[in-house]
Design a protein around this nucleic acid. Structure first.
Lengths: 344, 344
DNA sequence: CTGTTTTGTCAAAGCGCTTTGAAACGACTG
DNA sequence: CAGTCGTTTCAAAGCGCTTTGACAAAACAG
């Protein structure tokens, strides 16, 4: 069933049918109703390829997910981000196209996307410091929104990010206030911009209290349960072990917790844990009451906002890029307590 | 830069340029080289919408991910599945389109996909017993591959699944051989077909040894850390607690492990845990040596096979549907041991 | 009742590509 | 050297839609 068929069936021209279905004003109300009824009855759906070619709009948003060859892993927050974004796209009639690209091919991939015109815009995932993709996309004139930020990029660009530095600064202060002086940071890969920011926030809070950050308390790596476990085992075996751990993900926090158990230490009493929590749907930090004290910010909401910003940008090409910073909430759970031996 | 532009530039007709670039034989080798060089120099990329309209092929695969409104969560295995599938699509020049659809709209969504023609085929995720989508898609004539199976569907349909029943049967036998008699099953939501199959395998192994499955040892729910924890706390508080837990996911297993710690029980000695492991990239079961004894089958590989089967099906429309069963491997870790008090 | 506007409809062009059918050109055959 | 054939190229049609510009028909004004 094509537009032409439907038009013929109704004794109308394709023009009128098209206009009727697309809500143009210059079509008689009676005709519109007749057309709509026939379309529904016939189960008519405009062919999207044809429509796209005719309008010049792809009605699709690309998500380019970087696949590092070394650690070829799809970020686990991705699923939740997607869930947030897809609802927005669905409502606006956009498709969501996933494009997994090896790190080395990024530039080529974006150029191809632009030239082939199969997306109207892209979401940039996993930005790094000075990420070249921002300049590239700006140059290509392909609308984009970055999930996160890229330090050292001067150009203005649209992005949605959690205020990581602030969150980790507050988290560190919270631990300092509890009397902790040796606080370990179990961070993500510091190639990633968010990890850098988190570190900066952590260091800022320490310096503010005249504590020199100890590089031996800094761990950086893939945020897994094993990472947290290994880090904690290693650091707690030292002569001057940390009394608190600040971790970048719930998984890492769980790893630290396991290490504490192995060592017969009690979480929240002997050693404190404070983690960042992305509020992943399948991985909650306790139901009512949080298990871990955490800085909390929903990745799903970030996904939604990214999508909304991108669609707005596509709708209004001239507008200046919008940036949005999400403040994390510090929720107190059972994993933190006063540093052992600290004055009350 | 359009095909016409490029043709004009070369003093050739669009026809010839098109054929040269698409590898048709009736073009002189010298001309082809000339065209290819010019295309590369100009950075020419055929507009995908136009190509799609002309060829009638969408060059895209749809992944419809069901979003239950109650527990609106994207399955965490999804990210890994995608990673496996996307590599296949990329190599074949296909796009991957994600379509998140509320449960209620499934039928409408598939019909729309078909009528709009924006995908050449779909992967069906999260099949349930007697899943109506299989009949619907067969009826629509839209090529599809199911990730998993749907009990009670008679039609032949292409699918890739782990032999869950067999895996859980073997896992249960393994525990029985260690002397365990009360074995709890912490399963996924039993609306899902794979959960049903796992249960069947578990029950089969018990019955085989003349043990009547105790319904009080059956837990079914969202596979989270909290689920495992809650289930274990509840069951271990009983007068007749289980001596072993069989869980459907590493997350649940971790929850059970936490409960053991809370109760001062040692994993692998006082209580055993055996879990299924999807080998998610960001969530490994130990680096060299597995932490948990597990039935292991990679979701990523399932994703890859699904994609390959679907592309093959699209390439050869007449062919009968292919099914593929992946056998899980039973890897022995530190989480299992002889049942306490059992004869050696 | 004529002239002007508004309203509703349509034919035709165009989006950028593929593909069909025909034509031009040498090369080969008898 | 005419006739045939294989090779290479092209003009034109078509994919299914949107959109421009024109045109009747109806509504209004003078």
């Amino acid at each position: 069933m094509t537009l032409k068929d439907l038009a013929q069936l109704l004794g109308l021209s394709p023009t009128t049918v098209s206009r009727a279905l697309n809500g143009f004003p210059e079509v008689a109300e009676a005709t519109r109703r007749r057309v709509e009824a026939a379309a529904a009855a016939q189960g008519y759906r405009p062919n999207s390829q044809a429509r796209r070619l005719a309008t010049g709009r792809a009605m699709a948003i690309g998500h380019v997910i970087p696949l590092s060859t070394q650690h070829e892993m799809v970020n686990p927050v991705f699923a939740d981000f997607i869930a947030g974004a897809s609802a927005v796209y669905a409502r606006a009639g956009y498709d969501m196209v996933l494009i997994a690209v090896a790190d080395a091919d990024q530039t080529r991939a974006y150029r191809a996307l632009r030239a082939q015109g199969n997306v109207d815009g892209v979401i940039v995932h996993g930005p790094r410091a000075g990420d070249p993709r921002i300049a590239l996309l700006t140059d290509l004139g392909l609308p984009f929104v970055v999930h996160g930020r890229a330090s050292g990029v001067d150009l203005p660009y649209a992005h949605v990010d959690v205020n990581s530095a602030r969150a980790f600064e507050r988290a560190t202060r919270f631990l300092l206030d509890l009397g902790h002086r040796r606080i370990a940071l179990v961070n993500g890969l510091e190639e990633m911009d968010f990890a850098l920011r988190r570190r900066r926030g952590y260091e800022r809070a320490l310096v503010e209290r005249a504590i020199v950050p100890d590089p031996r308390l800094l761990i950086s790596g893939e945020m897994t349960e094993a990472q947290g476990y290994d880090a904690a085992r290693r650091l707690l075996a030292r002569a001057d072990p940390p009394s608190a751990f600040l971790t970048s993900s719930l998984l890492s926090a769980m790893g630290v917790r396991r290490a504490l158990w192995d060592l017969g230490l009690e979480m929240g009493r002997d050693v404190s844990i404070l983690t960042h929590d992305d509020e992943l749907g399948y991985f909650r930090n306790g139901a009512e009451e949080p298990i871990f004290t955490a800085t909390r910010a929903s990745v799903r909401i970030a996904g939604r906002r990214c999508a909304e910003l991108l669609l707005a940008q596509i709708a209004t090409p001239g507008a200046p890029p919008v940036a949005e910073l999400i403040e994390a909430v510090l929720v107190v759970g059972a994993s933190t307590g006063p540093a052992p031996g600290a004055p009350p």
